[in-house]
Every structure is written in C-alpha cells, then in structure tokens.
Design a protein around this nucleic acid. Structure first.
Lengths: 193, 193
DNA sequence: ATGTTTTTAGAACGATCGTTCGATTGATTC
DNA sequence: GAATCAATCGAACGATCGTTCTAAAAACAT
C-alpha cells in the first residue's frame, strides 16, 4: 500500500468517525483535516469536495449491503431460513460497518437532494429484499400478520436500532446478542410452527 | 391568544418543520425566519438564540413523554397490561408529535454537549420505564428472553422506527397499524400464555 | 542529477453562519 | 395627545463555512 493510499484511507477513516458522530452538516472539512493532522487541500485533492468524501465512505461499505443480504437470501431455500440468514447477515454487517450504517440512517432524508438520493435508494433496496422474503412467508401462512409491509418495518426497526445501542465493549458477547435479536424478530414475525 | 403569542407559536411551528427535516446544524436561523416571513431578530427576541428555539420545541412536547408513559403504566396492574398500555401510549404520542420525536431521535448524540444532554436524558428516562415493566414481566417468567435490556432495546427499535415510516396519508388507518405494531412487540417479548 | 508529475501546504475568496445593535413601528397608559 | 413599553426590522459584526489557487515539497522517470 503506497503512501498516497494511506492518506486516502486515513482521511476516510477520520472522516467516518466525525461524520457518523456529528452528521453531514455538523461536520466541517476543517474539522476532519485538523483531526487527521493534514491540510485542507488534501481532502479536495483526493475527493473533490465534501460530498465526494461522504459518497466515497458510503461507496466503500454501505452500497454493498444489499448484495450481502441477497447473497444470504440465496444461501437458503425456505423463506423462514432465508429470513433468518438475512437478519443474521444484516446484524453482522451492522457491527462491521456500524459507523457507516449510522451515517446512512441518521442522515437519510435530511441531506440535500443529490446526496440523499443514494442513501434512500439503498434503503429502498433493502426494504425490497425483506419484503420478498416475508411475502413468501405470508403465502405459506407462516407470517403472524397479514400486513407484510408493517412487519418489514418492524423488523427493520429492530435491526436498525441495534446499530444505535450496540457497543463493542459491552458485557455480552456478540453471538448472544445477535441470537437474542434474531429470536425477537422471528417471534414477532412468524407464526408458531 | 394575543398577537405576540401568535408570533411565538408560528415561529415554533415553522422551526419544527425545518428542524425535523434538516436537523439542527442543517437548519439556519435565516431559513426559519425567511420561511415564516419575519425578521431574524424576532427569533432572538422571543427565544434568545438558536439553541433556545430548539429547546423550546422539545419542552413543549417531548419532555412530557416520560410522564405520559408513566401515567399509562399506572393505569394497569399486571406487567403485561402495563407493557401493552405503555406501547399504545407511546405510539399515540408518536403520531401526535411525530416531527418533535424525530428531532429528538435523529439528532440525539450529534448535538453539542449542552443541547444534546436534555434529549439523552429523556431517552434514558423512557428506557427506565420499559426496563421496569419488563423486569417485572421477567420475574413472572412471562418474558421470552432472559436479557431484559436487549428486549427493551428491541421494543424501542420497533416503536422509534414507526416514527420514521408512518405517514398520515397512508392507506391503513392508525388503529390497525398500532394494533399490528403492538402485536409484533408482544409476540417478540412475551412468552406464550 | 535533471526534468516531470503527483501530492501537500498555506493563503485567500466569497458566501453564509449565529448573533448583536440601534432605529422604527405598534400598542398601552396616563 | 404625549409618554412608555413591547415588538419588529434592517444593517452590521466577527467567525466559520466550502472551495480555489499558487507555490513548495515529494516521488518518480529517464
């Protein structure tokens, strides 16, 4: 890895820290440069502008989330197993890219037209994946509610909220937490078998 | 209602619209004044500064949320009925003060020390209410999970996410939606009786 | 070693930010 | 109707914003 790549990666990491904590408009380019200990101009040289830096962070991590979920879905055959696999994958990505997903979630909607569009599209994509699985579950009669859409929202609420409260230095180990969250979701969504 | 009160209320309403959409740092005092069609100075005359305006909006609505939930809790005797009542009350407040709660949730943590403290405290308060109920449920053996804290987070995830997806002009009526959300929560949290 | 290109730093620009101030208007009181 | 007070306005201040520009430094090629 060359020196220039180090600068890029380092800036992305620093920017991610500040963006995910203070939001897009709450973060200034000068903050990022100062914290990272480099000049303002570097950011513009490497990323063009503030929006470019924001997009690059999302591109690196969040944009592949739908594909990860689809891959998890494809690894199982029954809707129930698919739902379980997708939620598990979603939770796993959530801890690998916690700050990036927080960027996506917290700022969704409150960004200007151009930047926000990407994030909204990704969320819509994820929504579609869950909707498909739950629809098939519903056709099997295995869904507790007849309102697929509401159930999807409820599941996304649990998973997305997990991003907000999970702390890597917490007392419980990750596997336990994920199992608990998954169980809650499955009990909430699925009829007893 | 006097003319001055109209100015205050009007400004609060306009500010709420913009704050809840663009966030604290994404909103400028000039935006609010321009949209409302008054001078900048009015805001400072009535609310002191930007932070004062933000706090006043929260004071009007969100700060009483814990009391509303406690009142709902006190209206029932069994933990299970209490949980149901509190969630119902929570959902009801969510549609009455949707934008205000979004302000509280979206911006929590990404505000400067002073302003953010209030919001964090309110959320901690709400967390405590749910924790108490679920702990009693757990002692009855009626809780599915042995991890009360995780269950509380899961419930809050569902309820808070409801704020994000609910649209007053949607196809389903409010009662149906609330019943669905409540059922999901109860199935997820409670053991079969 | 020299010339060329890539990368960094620092100063500067115009715009906008939150905030303050003095003057002006409107309402109220004597 | 004059005096007093509350409410509003417009202009201005300093600070900070995103961004650009120019020059120096570093890395690279020959």
């Amino acid at each position: 890895m060359t020196i220039q790549a180090d600068m890029r990666e380092g800036l992305l990491s620093t920017a991610l820290d500040i963006f995910s904590e203070k939001g897009f408009s709450g973060t200034s380019i000068r903050d990022i440069a100062k914290v990272h200990g480099v000049s303002l101009s570097n950011i513009y040289y490497h990323f063009g502008n503030k929006e470019g830096l924001w997009r690059e962070i999302l591109k690196r991590s969040v944009q592949e989330l739908p594909n990860i979920l689809r891959q998890a879905e494809a690894s199982e055959t029954t809707p129930r197993a698919q739902l379980e696999a997708v939620v598990r994958a979603h939770l796993r990505v959530a801890i690998d890219h916690q700050r990036e997903l927080l960027m996506l979630l917290v700022q969704a909607g409150q960004l200007e037209e151009g930047i926000g569009h990407d994030t909204v599209e990704i969320q819509r994509d994820i929504l579609g994946i869950y909707s498909g699985i739950l629809k098939r579950l519903s056709e099997e009669g295995a869904l507790s509610s007849e309102h697929v859409k509401i159930t999807v929202f409820n599941i996304l609420g649990v998973v997305n909220w997990y991003l907000r409260w999970y702390r890597p230095d917490g007392p419980l180990d990750v596997e336990t937490i994920h199992q608990e969250v998954l169980d809650f979701v499955l009990r909430g969504a699925c009829r007893d078998t």
